[in-house]
């Protein structure tokens, strides 16, 4: 089973997506090759994807869908000329807490696989991941263990572990209790601390509400 991992992040190997790939790979006995869509010619890459049995595309969620560079690759994809059934699966990391923010992307990815006559392995969605590469890694120990287990299961079975997919996708939506909590003045303030700290560090806290394009 020849598998290629595609990193679909505009930040290539510097961001959260790379962290997800690294921890997925840590569960494998043999690392898989990784290519960075940012650094590739989409037309050439689309053709070379036909040399693999399985493609795993790992990407951030940008505006409820794939980043523009990933869509530019999708535009070049064609069904395999010899009807070799390529398998394709996706891992999406998102900033918002609830995984439902990626639901239209998930539907589209399934539809795309169908369009291309690829076998769809599913989409793993993990929300609340924006700070993975900013905060110390011990904050994300559980997530990294789950990604490792996801990798180990994939190597053994050639698919995503449904139980882990469910766990990583939790919560799908925010409960009323969570909304009340997140909207409470104290939690709201706590949530802004990280942003405000960085804005202050960068000397632009006073400008945080600027409207430069009016």
């Amino acid at each position: 089973m020849k598998t290629l991992i595609l990193n679909g992040s505009p930040r290539a190997d510097h961001g959260n997506t790379q962290l997800f790939i690294d921890h997925f790979q840590s569960g494998l006995t043999r690392p898989l090759s990784v290519r960075y869509i940012l650094r590739e010619n989409p037309e050439k890459l689309a053709l070379e994807m036909h040399d693999y049995d399985t493609i795993l595309l790992v990407m951030p969620l940008y505006i409820h869908a794939m980043p523009g560079i990933v869509m530019k690759l999708f535009e070049k994809l064609k069904p395999h000329p010899t009807n070799h059934k390529i398998k394709i699966g996706f891992i999406v990391q998102a900033g918002f807490i609830e995984s439902s923010t990626a639901r239209f992307l998930e539907q589209y990815l399934s539809s795309l696989a169908n369009r291309l006559n690829y076998t769809y392995l599913g989409t793993v969605i993990k929300g609340d991941a924006a700070a993975c590469s900013i905060l110390p890694h011990f904050f994300f120990g559980k997530l990294f263990k789950q990604l490792k287990a996801l990798g180990a299961y994939y190597e053994k079975n050639g698919s995503f572990n449904p139980l882990l997919v469910t766990k990583l996708g939790y919560p799908v939506d925010l409960s009323k209790f969570q909304v009340r909590l997140l909207e409470s003045p104290l939690v709201k303030r706590l949530n802004q601390i990280g942003w405000n700290w960085i804005l202050k560090r960068n000397g632009c806290f006073e400008n945080r509400f600027d409207q430069p394009y009016l």
Partner: peptide, 24 residues
């Protein structure tokens, strides 16, 4: 394009985050 918005339009959407605040 390929059953979705074009890559160029999606890039435009990605570039619209300056119009909003980072706060949630």
């Amino acid at each position: 394009s390929q059953g979705f918005v074009s890559g160029n339009l999606k890039t435009l959407f990605d570039r619209m985050i300056p119009l909003f605040l980072p706060y949630t």
